[in-house]
Design a protein around this nucleic acid. Structure first.
Lengths: 189, 189
DNA sequence: GTATTTGCCTAAAGGGTTTAGGCAAATGGG
DNA sequence: CCCATTTGCCTAAACCCTTTAGGCAAATAC
């Protein structure tokens, strides 16, 4: 009886791949067991339950996304930083649609607080250092940027911009131009 | 043997209520049957399958949302229209979280094209009549507004703004102020 | 008032989730 | 190196959701 060499780590990675191939909602304990040619029950030594699996994939995706964003941000400031960060976000979603869905999986507050989601917020704040925004306006701007990135990429990957001109890339570029202008002329309260 | 009086209409309405109470992912044919005190199989005369049920709830939500947005928009222009539209959107999501989730359920292209989603785009364009934007900039702006509304409300209802100051309402107001300023000073290409 | 349609039923098969309990392989201490 | 312990995967079984097939009874229509 040869062992399959399961571990939480490997299962979560395989789950993320499965998400990208088939969609996050297709990620089930059963499907994952099939992929390892192992009985479903065997996974329950490594995962608490189905929700636990999905949560771990979500956390992995948030980490990966934060890593890429951090790399994109390194050594940049101003609009350059804004664009690099936004593109890291969008590129990740396009390359890893299932993981991106996972990153939007609802986490309970404590899990969320311990996740890489926190790094995302910090990096967004870092971008704003290139603009002149004091609190509380900075927080409002952080929330706006998060909304635009998450909203645009979400709509785009749902196919929302597929069947009308102009192309999505063009809108994306113009949206980033517009955000840059807005941040440089942020209205007083 | 008294009949329960099922119909696709009633099932979809009840499904929408169930979504608001328990979350869209809890909307199953079984749960709905339970709610009508009827056997699960009985629903299959009214619904093709589980996906059909969810799709119909999504379409209902999109209609309701478009109706509210249209009412909010009536007789308004400029920032007044922008604010009323955005608030209609956000208020709906807060009052009907499950339906709002449903409205983001992925529809196949033809279903989407026949849905009230089209009205949403038209109304967003109507808002922009109060600003001075020619094509293709108008389309870019439509996409930006859609992204911000969908993104902000999505993050907010996921609890993203719960555990930090300032409150979400304040950010929402400032974000709308900022969008108004941006639309009035949309950068040339 | 019979004929037809409609509405809900039972039955059954297929799949995902999860727990309990067991055997065999890996690991490590004497 | 051998035995004890731990670890990894197994079988078995219960429970829930989905979906199809076929049937009987209530509503409706002529």
């Amino acid at each position: 009886m040869v062992r399959a060499g399961l571990s939480t780590e490997r299962l979560v990675r395989a789950g993320a791949e499965l998400a990208d191939e088939a969609g996050f909602e297709q990620v089930t304990v059963s499907a994952l067991a099939r992929r390892f040619d192992v009985k479903t029950a065997s996974l329950y030594s490594h995962l608490r339950n189905s929700h636990d699996l999905r949560t771990r994939i979500a956390l992995l995706a948030l980490e990966e996304l934060a890593d890429r964003a951090a790399e994109a941000l390194a050594g940049r400031a101003g609009k350059d930083a804004l664009t690099a960060f936004a593109n890291a976000y969008r590129d990740y979603a396009r390359a890893h649609p299932g993981r991106f869905e996972a990153a939007r999986y609802r986490l309970d507050p404590e899990t969320a607080a311990a996740s890489a989601g926190v790094r995302h917020a910090q990096m967004t704040r870092a971008i704003l250092r290139g603009y002149d925004l004091a609190e509380p306006e900075q927080t409002h701007a952080v929330r706006l940027l998060g909304s635009v990135f998450s909203g645009y990429v979400g709509l785009e990957s749902a196919g929302g911009f597929d069947h009308s001109a102009p192309g999505s890339q063009e809108s994306w570029d113009r949206v980033l131009d517009a955000l840059d202008v807005l941040l440089r002329n942020w209205p007083a309260s």
